[in-house]
Design a protein around this nucleic acid. Sequence first.
DNA 1: CTATATTGGTGCAATATCGCACTAAAGGAG
DNA 2: CTCCTTTAGTGCGATATTGCACCAATATAG
Lengths: 151, 151
Amino acid sequence: MTSQDAPPLVFQVFNEIGIIEQLSRTVLEAHMPKGLIAPHFGVLNHLVRVGDGSTPMAMARAFQVPKTSMTHTVSGLVKHELVEMRPNPEDGRSKQVWLTDAGRALRARIISDMSPQFERLARDFDISKLQHILPVLTELRIYLDESRDRV
Amino acid sequence: MTSQDAPPLVFQVFNEIGIIEQLSRTVLEAHMPKGLIAPHFGVLNHLVRVGDGSTPMAMARAFQVPKTSMTHTVSGLVKHELVEMRPNPEDGRSKQVWLTDAGRALRARIISDMSPQFERLARDFDISKLQHILPVLTELRIYLDESRDRV
DNA sequence: CTATATTGGTGCAATATCGCACTAAAGGAG
DNA sequence: CTCCTTTAGTGCGATATTGCACCAATATAG
């Protein structure tokens, strides 16, 4: 019975990460309008930060989700008129996703709505600890990402 | 445009955590039999570690998911005969979830199947870094958990 | 150039997630 | 005890996720 009493370190890390992901996603979604969830925000945020005109497949790869999932998420944003699809002039197979003004505005509003919570966390929590773990998380993410297809 | 070029630290941490969660979940699910996904493993693992006979609601709270989601997950495990439901002798409203031998065996097999990958990660990655971030992740998880209903 | 392989996107079906409403049991106020 | 509230669980419907199959466009082999 020893093995199950002492879960390996890696296991524990992934476990905590899973719980944090769930809790933080819930917080995010509490600030989103009805009908939109975390993946929608992810796409809006991605388009603002990386730039408009990305293709659905490029975003599916960026988020590591199947292309059908990205099609579905983007179509939800189109329905809410937060992005619009345009043909890709460089490749007849693909499309480009462009933000609308409403899309930009919604993303900005969600972020500003959440800022009090971030600030409270920054007050209550030792931020330097987060600064220390961020590079490790990034390294771990890169490792997992690169080992993804080798498995 | 400055605010969106420099996402706050907390934002970045949650972002990395979200990606790691997704990648690690994919790894886990690659080791699970067809028809079972990460939440099923979560419940099996929980029952082994915390002990048999927990109620669906207790687990819903532990995993921070709606009770309907837990009902669904547990019913999938029942269908695969990995757990069984019994009436709760102490409360006529609720039930208890007990592992079957097959449930215990499957959980053990999944863990042992994944151990080579954990070991490879332990070789390729500086484990002491994970040791350093684990307590911070735990602290962050506890903070979010406690602030969950205050928001 | 032609034939084949690959790639981007979508429709469809199976399953998952989750809010809402409802029932049954338990708890609490009087 | 009775009434009211709370709690555990489930049915149902809306939406999400994802594998599979397919089409159209592009890339590649010969």
